[in-house]
Design a protein around this nucleic acid. Sequence first.
DNA 1: AATCAACTATTACAAATGTAAATATAACCC
DNA 2: GGGTTATATTTACATTTGTAATAGTTGATT
Lengths: 130, 130
Amino acid sequence: MPKISESEWEIMKTVWRENPLTAEQIVQQLPKDTEWSDQTVRTFINRLMKKRALGYHKSGRSYQYYPLISEKECVRAESKSFLNRVFNGAAGLMMTNFLEETQLSDKEIERLQQILTEKQGRDPQDPSRP
Amino acid sequence: MPKISESEWEIMKTVWRENPLTAEQIVQQLPKDTEWSDQTVRTFINRLMKKRALGYHKSGRSYQYYPLISEKECVRAESKSFLNRVFNGAAGLMMTNFLEETQLSDKEIERLQQILTEKQGRDPQDPSRP
DNA sequence: AATCAACTATTACAAATGTAAATATAACCC
DNA sequence: GGGTTATATTTACATTTGTAATAGTTGATT
């Protein structure tokens, strides 16, 4: 799993959301507050190709880029890294911390409670069988 | 809030856990699997001083280092950065994701449920008054 | 006081990252 | 087919990070 830098994450998120995309489309679909020049974005795209995080196929004069690695995998890797760096890997601690610091809507709270209830009492070694 | 790199986080976590500490003590208290040379650790300490994340007072021939920034603040900043980078700032999404991917003990699940119950139904604009 | 040993401070250097300019390439228009 | 121009590729350069080695300082020792 290649290491994706902060800036590169913006590119990847855009391409995950919709693909394939040309470089120009990527530029357009980045958050409006992004202040990178076109060339900068193209540099990031290129680095992601070198890392084998993006692939492409030609289309006319330009390329159409698409992800070679899944968002799920990247999210998982990045989450793990964050968890270890900041909370020494203690997921429970991390979550109590987030819950305490974060404002959540009632809807979200219910959703979380539902997930927790489902998890509860299940054999930890066999999550598929309640 | 200075940006703390991955390696620097290890130093800070050690010093937050107990302080003040001399450089040598920091070296000793790092996780056993850390393979940095003494000099490397001292480099990190120095960079943290430049960033004003660590302070010191002299003690005999060596320094005793202590944190100038709180763990809470750093955790908050790093969490926010992670949340934005990976989940576009959507804390609810982040937490459902973590809950689904993470194995938690029944104890931890109960603790989380308790926090959720406490949060529930409270005025989001005035968390102090239930 | 001169020396030694332990620390700290400075310097080094490669890789990654942020930010882009310059150059090469190739598709499209005439 | 040749020029134009949009795209991609290469090159550039400063900063940060990882990883130390080397040089400088100072309290301790004889």
